[in-house]
Computed example of a mutant assay.
Amino acid sequence: MIVSPSHETLNKLIRHQLHNLFILTDPEDEILTRSLTTTLAKTERCFRQSTNKYYRKDEEIFFSIYHSGQYCIFLYLLSRQVFLDNPKHRELADKIYYLNKTLNGLDLYYEISMPEAFHLDHPVGSVMGRATYGNNFTFAQLCTVGNNKGFFPEIGENVQMFSGAKILGRCKIGDNVVVSANTYIKDTDIPANSLVFGSSPNLVIKPKNSRP
């Protein structure tokens, strides 16, 4: 994977940002070093499944640390890797999570298990809560996934959430579902290969190949 402008700049940048916002201790710096290699490998696997033209350069996987969406995904993966490597010492994972929230306006906690490949576009104002997420999950700005009365969604593969969409509670979202902008799904199952819009309990569900 190409890291632009360089791996060295990435190492300096993440440490500079964390130290300026929260103060990075020497032990945390060592933890960061140990977790970075694994995180970059996971970042490459995630980006490899993206069809976005900005994730390729000269037929290689491309990670620009100044592409906010790419850096956003990297920071989530880093915070989660630090947590997985050091579950009893959460402060550094908290700092990276908070840094991501500060830079990108996204609430994606490191305890949330995202799939190997997930994608986002302008994620400002989105909250990805506890749920089961299938591979190639995609979301945009102002999206919410979360619980209702202690129940959490189960989201299949290749599900897309457009701007302002919400999935809450006891929901099973099938594979290849498109959740249209401003759709509100609560405690409702959505069959695979569907386009859904409107608000529960009055959702409109159509096969993806049909026209409104």
Score class of each variant (00 low, 15 high):
residue 4 S to G: 01
residue 5 P to K: 04
residue 6 S to P: 03
residue 8 E to I: 15
residue 9 T to W: 05
residue 9 T to M: 11
residue 9 T to D: 10
residue 13 L to H: 00
residue 15 R to N: 00
residue 19 H to D: 15
residue 19 H to E: 08
residue 21 L to H: 12
residue 22 F to H: 09
residue 23 I to Q: 11
residue 24 L to F: 08
residue 24 L to K: 09
residue 28 E to Y: 07
residue 32 L to V: 11
residue 47 F to E: 00
residue 47 F to R: 01
residue 51 T to Q: 08
residue 53 K to S: 15
residue 53 K to Y: 14
residue 54 Y to A: 11
residue 61 I to G: 00
residue 64 S to H: 05
residue 71 Y to A: 09
residue 72 C to E: 10
residue 74 F to C: 02
residue 75 L to V: 13
residue 75 L to T: 08
residue 76 Y to A: 06
residue 82 V to Q: 00
residue 82 V to N: 01
residue 86 N to Y: 08
residue 86 N to P: 01
residue 91 E to W: 08
residue 99 L to V: 09
residue 99 L to R: 04
residue 99 L to F: 03
residue 100 N to P: 09
residue 102 T to F: 09
residue 102 T to H: 05
residue 103 L to Q: 07
residue 108 L to A: 03
residue 110 Y to R: 07
residue 111 E to Y: 04
residue 111 E to T: 14
residue 113 S to H: 10
residue 115 P to L: 07
residue 119 H to P: 01
residue 125 G to M: 05
residue 129 G to T: 06
residue 129 G to P: 04
residue 130 R to A: 12
residue 132 T to N: 14
residue 135 N to I: 04
residue 136 N to V: 09
residue 137 F to D: 09
residue 140 A to T: 15
residue 140 A to D: 04
residue 140 A to V: 02
residue 145 V to R: 05
residue 148 N to D: 12
residue 150 G to E: 09
residue 151 F to C: 13
residue 155 I to K: 04
residue 155 I to F: 08
residue 162 F to D: 02
residue 164 G to D: 08
residue 165 A to W: 06
residue 166 K to D: 04
residue 166 K to E: 08
residue 167 I to W: 05
residue 171 C to W: 01
residue 173 I to L: 12
residue 174 G to K: 09
residue 174 G to F: 02
residue 175 D to F: 10
residue 176 N to I: 01
residue 177 V to G: 03
residue 179 V to N: 05
residue 180 S to L: 12
residue 181 A to T: 04
residue 181 A to H: 00
residue 182 N to L: 14
residue 183 T to N: 03
residue 185 I to L: 01
residue 187 D to W: 01
residue 191 P to D: 09
residue 193 N to R: 04
residue 193 N to A: 03
residue 194 S to F: 02
residue 194 S to P: 11
residue 196 V to W: 07
residue 197 F to E: 12
residue 201 P to L: 11
residue 202 N to A: 10
residue 203 L to R: 03
residue 209 N to E: 15
residue 210 S to F: 09
